[in-house]
Amino acid sequence: MTEIPTAPSETPAINRRRSPFGDAAIRVFGRLWRRRYVHLTALGYIVLLVLFWREFLSIPSGQALSNWSPPNETHPFGVNALGQDMLKLSLAGGAKSMTVALVGAALGVGAGILASWLVVISGRRIIGFWSLTRISHWGTFTPAFSVLVLIAVGLRPGFWLLAVLLAGVIFIATVARIARWFEDLELRGDTIAGTVLGFTSIQVVNRNHLPVVIRRGIALSCSLVPGLVLGETALSFIGLGLVDGSWGKLIADGREVVFEAPWLLIYPGLVASLSLFALASLGWMARRSMNGELPPRVF
């Protein structure tokens, strides 16, 4: 009788399969690196800014009211009425806006992936995908900014509540797209092969679909961040978003004294515009690198 060879207790390193999630992460950064290393640098800069903004940017506290001063060699963006340096204020405001937008985008896309994953796992795919698609379809003709203002009137959101509100907008805007990714992956040959080989539905979804969807989800989040930053800036501008030191608040303060001290309006807006354009080009490049689709309309 022929003995069936048993697998060795330890798989040789050459045959060891990498983690699908690790593989996806390596692909993300590999593609970014190949396409535009400048964007990778910008991404690293933004991550550092977001994580350590408190340490890097010590905002000068409001001293006794003194006269503002226009831009000079010591303060290239000028000084406001409280004696605070506008350059530092603009950078710190950007870090706050970007942080809330990053958290909102990650939460929204994450919730979309979770909802679609639950639909696939539960087996009710037709009705589940249809429901998720309808949610996004109804979101396409909702004036999201007015709805956000309506909620913010009562809630007066802080950092986390604002991030959750923005995540809700992102969820509604992206969930149909994410559900479509799962639907497309269901029809691929490797999914059918996995089913024929005897893998369960959950195994196929977790090992085959999820890494691809997460990879695309990261790219989608990157492309949504600038829109969310713009939305948060607009909310802060009218006094309903982050009220202390975000870009919108700085621009609103500058608007009050625009004819007397125009630098208080010009420089925060300039920093916001340049940063938003940099973020947008990073997002578009990330989306192209991941071979994704167009970002949906948000606000």
Partner: peptide
């Protein structure tokens, strides 16, 4: 498309 329009209209007023 990435410049805040409300900032631009304030500049326009100036």
């Amino acid at each position: 498309s990435w410049v805040p329009a409300f900032w631009l209209v304030c500049l326009a007023a100036l």
